[in-house]
């Protein structure tokens, strides 16, 4: 039912084992060594981690990460006591318009660490868990390209994309001859709009940790509505 072409890797568990053997960088080797879940692991048995980056722009080749928020969770609980957030000193100049969007100012970033300094902590939080993002073309590519720039080796890992899930659901709802006749279009799948459909509260956007928590809540709600705790992870991760 989900679009296979979207999937980076067909068997994540096997793929990460391979990466562990091939990886040159100690930190990444360690990260891959932890491995990941088997394709048929049920959602209820999985430890997720919701991840959100705020960046200076949308192009991972030109722009930089300025803040990272993450929170580990399961289908039952979002663990705020294990939440983490960091400001990162950006490589490129902080653009005025991204100051407006994120509300992060130069003084916030003054003395903020370089990505290298927090990488160990970040990888430790992500290792072994299934990363959940809303719109997967930010976090994974940004991290991948940043790491390539730093030590000539990128990173891959499976992600669950709540935006893709919402998109599939909305497309299905808007599909069908009758709906096309009525001119029904798929509803907005932005984070805030998606959350509204599950009666989740409205949050102030563009704080990395708040967005990470919002994404975790959204996945709990999506699974509550459209899947079951017994659904295998292979149906969701990409």
């Amino acid at each position: 039912m989900y679009n296979f072409i979207n999937k980076e890797v067909l068997n994540w568990s096997a793929f990460l084992k391979l990466k562990a053997q091939l990886s040159k960088d100690e930190r990444l080797k360690k990260f891959y060594d932890v491995g990941t879940y088997h394709d048929d692991t049920k959602l209820q048995d999985i430890e997720f981690v919701a991840l959100d980056f705020e960046t200076t722009g949308l192009d991972p080749k030109k722009n930089s990460i300025i803040s990272i928020g993450l929170v580990p969770f399961t289908l039952k609980r979002i663990y705020c006591n294990q939440a983490k957030s960091w400001f990162i000193n950006p490589k490129d100049k902080l653009q005025e318009d991204s100051i407006i969007i994120h509300g992060i100012t130069h003084s916030d970033l003054k003395g903020a660490p370089d990505l290298r300094r927090i990488l160990d902590q970040l990888l430790e939080q992500l290792a072994g868990k299934v990363v959940v993002v809303h719109y997967r073309n930010i976090e994974r590519p940004f991290l991948d390209l940043h790491l390539r720039a730093l030590f000539k080796e990128g990173i891959v890992f499976p992600v669950v994309d709540t935006m893709q899930i919402e998109s599939n659901i909305q497309r299905k709802l808007a599909a069908g001859f009758l709906n096309r006749l009525r001119g029904k279009k798929p509803a907005s799948i932005r984070l805030g709009q998606s959350r509204k459909r599950y009666n989740l509260p409205t949050y102030q956007p563009h704080d990395a940790l708040t967005d990470a928590i919002a994404t975790a809540e959204l996945l709990q709600a999506q699974v509550g509505y459209h899947f079951s705790p017994d659904t295998p992870i292979k149906d969701l991760w990409l």
Binding site: R77, Y79, C80, E217, Q220
Partner: peptide, 11 residues
């Protein structure tokens, strides 16, 4: 209190 919170969604 805030740090200790766990969040849970119920349909």
């Amino acid at each position: 209190v805030v740090q200790s919170v766990e969040i849970s969604y119920f349909r």
